[in-house]
Amino acid sequence: MVDLRLRGVVVIVGNYGSGKSEVAINLAAFHRQAGLRVRIADLDLVNPYFRSREAREALAEMGIEVVLPPDPYLQAELPVLSPMVAGIIRQPGELTILDVGGDNVGAMVLAALGDAFAAGAIPQVLQVVNPLRPATDTHAGCLKIRRQIEAAAMLSVTGLIGNANLIDETTPGEIADGYAFVQGLSEASGLPVVCITVAEELLPQVDASRFICPVLTIRRQLVPPWKKAGRL
């Protein structure tokens, strides 16, 4: 299996509910465990619940720097962007992951950071795709959202992350279908597949050797109160 190695600024975008935050959190944890200095910034200004900030304690315990708005505004529905974000885009260190809100609306915040992006290296902008979500169940749907996000963000998408899942009800068949879907999307768009995701509990049932891209293990963090988060 190919190694997953991300460096510099990595921007996670995608349609609403594609699983960006869960992917961003697990990408951060994976690279931290590989020994990198990792930062994650929650730029979700549109979603009121289930944002990556909810995993802040688990991430901080691993030694990941979590960049968030100041505490009193954490649960506010105000578009509060930490003033630190522009600075870390200019000086990303080994790996800085930006978890952006959904759709073009959520990606608009990136345009506001245009000066910071222009000053640094070209960022990797990864589109998370779950074909089991209604708006992205076709390649055309994924490409439409890609265009809308690029227009709003004023950045180009540079890669794909296949995140096919039905949360607890995902089957190995859906992982295989999701893999084929994102490979097809890669051919249609010319974008490389950076990785696909598989939930930790499903991993034993999946033959990862048949995938030509890296597999990111997902240990779910953004769970409802009656469920336990996975151990990062």
Binding site: Y16, G17, N130, L132, R133, P134, D137, N165, L166, I167, E169
Partner: peptide, 14 residues
């Protein structure tokens, strides 16, 4: 088949 939806979206579709 099954799709993954946010409650608010699912209510609209329903």
């Amino acid at each position: 088949g099954k799709v993954l939806m946010k409650g608010n979206e699912a209510i609209g579709e329903a």
